[in-house]
Design a protein around this nucleic acid. Structure first.
Lengths: 223, 223
DNA sequence: ATCGTAGAATCGTTCAACAATCCAACGATC
DNA sequence: GATCGTTGGATTGTTGAACGATTCTACGAT
C-alpha cells in the first residue's frame, strides 16, 4: 500500500492560484522579479493567462510567505528586506536552530544524517568552486537542523524564513564572499556534534549567526 | 510626532477580505463555528454580504493560519486538530519557548515584565475562579516568553500556533481541569527566572509541555 | 520651488456565467 | 443483500466585465 500512499501526493491537483504562486515564487527567488518591483495585476495576469481574481489569490499566498508585500490600493511589490528585517530573521533563527540543535542526542539517525550529509555535499561542491550549489547545500544543512525538532510547522516556517533571507542576500548582492567562510564553520559544528559536545556546537552556531547577520546588515545598510 | 505615528496604524484601512477573515477567526476561536464544520461559500458570503471572490480571499488567509483546511473542489472546513497535530505543535513550542527562555538574562526589563505580569494576573483570576480569563492570561505568559527572542516573525508564528492549540482544546473539551494546574507551574518558572536559575526554569517549562501535550493527546484520541 | 488640481491608470469589489468536480440517490448486477 | 455504475443536482474553480475608490502623474497657478 505504501506505493499507493506515495501516489496520493501527485494526485492532489493544485489549484491555478497555487500553481501561479509557485511560478512567481521561483521568479522572485531567482531574481527575475527584483526586490522592490511592483507586480501589476493586469500585466502579470495577462502574461500568465489567468484572471485578476485568481492572480490576486496567488498574491495573497506569497504575501503570507513574506515574499511580496501588499500596500492597500497601491498593489503588491517584491519584498525588499531591510536591516531590521534581517535582524528579526536572525533572532528567530537563533532561537529555532540553537534550540533544535540541543535535541541532537534524542533524535533518530535519519534526522542526524540530514544534518551531516549537506555538509559533505557543501565541501565537495566548494572544492569545485560551485558556490551556487554549495549555497543550496548550506540551506539543506540548516533545514536539517530545524528538522531535529520533528515539527512540520516549525520546518515550514523556517523555509519561509530561509526564502526571505535569500531575498536579503540578493539585495545585498552577497555572492560568494561570505559563502566561502561558512563551509568550514559547518564542518566544525558537525564534528562537535559527533563528539556529543552539544553546548560547544550551539556556541559555534550562535557565532556563525552573529557573523552572518552583521555582514548582511552592513551590506544592506550600505545599499 | 509620536502621537501622529500612532494614528497611522488606525489610518490603514483594512481590506474587506481582511475584515471578513478577522470576523471568521473570532467565530472559529470562540467555537461558534465548530471544528469539522464545512463553510459554504454561498451561505457565508450571503450572510456577511460579501462576494464569493472576496470571501475566498478571506478563506485563503485563514487557511494559512491553519484555522481552516482547504480541500480541492470540496470546500473549506474548520480545522479539527488531531493527536499528531498536537504533538507537532508542542514540538515547535518546546524549541521556540525553551530557546527564548534561555535569553532571559540578555533582554530588557520590559521584556521580562511581559513574562511576569501575566502570571500575577493568572493568579488573581484563578483566585476568583475566573478560569476563562485565567486561561487567556496563561497565553499572555507564553507570548511573553516568545517575545524574549525579540523577533516579530517568531511571535507572529507563535500566535498562529496558540490559535491552533485553542482549537485543539475545544475539540478535547478541555475546560478547567488542566488549567488549574498550570498556574502554580508558571509561578515556579518565574521564581526560578528571578533567581537566575535559567536551566531549571527551562526544565520546568519542558515538563509542563510534556504534561500538557500528553493530557491533550489523551483526550483527543479518546474522542 | 511649492502647491493644488484634473485626468489617467490601477486597485477593490461585485456580479454573472460556465466548466469541472463532488455528492447523494437510484437502479442494475451478481 | 451488498456492491457497482449512472445520473442529476449542488458546490467549487475560474473567468470576464463592470464600476466606484484610490493613487499617481503631469500640468499649470501661486
Amino acid at each position: 500500500m505504501s506505493t499507493l500512499a506515495q501516489g496520493k501526493a501527485g494526485l492532489e491537483r493544485a489549484s491555478t492560484a497555487q500553481k501561479v504562486a509557485d511560478m512567481l515564487r521561483e521568479r522572485v527567488l531567482d531574481g527575475e522579479l527584483a526586490p522592490g518591483l511592483r507586480l501589476s495585476e493586469e500585466a502579470i495576469g495577462g502574461a500568465l493567462g489567468v484572471s485578476r481574481n485568481t492572480l490576486r489569490e496567488a498574491f495573497r499566498l506569497l504575501t503570507r510567505d513574506r515574499l511580496l508585500v501588499h500596500e492597500h490600493s497601491r498593489g503588491v511589490f517584491v519584498r525588499r528586506p531591510t536591516g531590521d528585517d534581517v535582524r528579526d530573521l536572525y533572532a528567530a533563527r537563533r532561537v529555532i536552530e540553537c534550540g533544535a540543535l540541543r535535541l541532537w542526542n534524542g533524535v533518530t539517525d535519519a534526522q542526524r544524517e540530514a544534518v551531516r550529509a549537506p555538509v559533505r555535499q557543501a565541501v565537495a561542491r566548494a572544492e569545485k568552486n560551485d558556490w551556487t550549489k554549495a549555497g543550496s547545500a548550506n540551506i539543506q544543512f540548516h533545514r536539517g537542523i530545524v528538522g531535529l525538532a520533528g515539527s512540520t510547522r516549525l520546518s515550514d516556517e523556517s523555509d519561509r524564513l530561509f526564502a526571505e533571507l535569500m531575498l536579503a542576500f540578493r539585495v545585498a548582492q552577497e555572492i560568494n564572499d561570505f559563502y566561502q567562510t561558512y563551509v568550514p564553520w559547518n564542518r566544525r559544528i558537525v564534528e562537535l556534534l559527533n563528539n556529543s559536545e552539544i553546548d560547544e556546537a550551539v556556541d559555534q552556531l550562535n557565532e556563525y549567526f552573529d557573523a552572518a547577520e552583521e555582514d548582511l546588515v552592513q551590506r544592506l545598510e550600505a545599499n
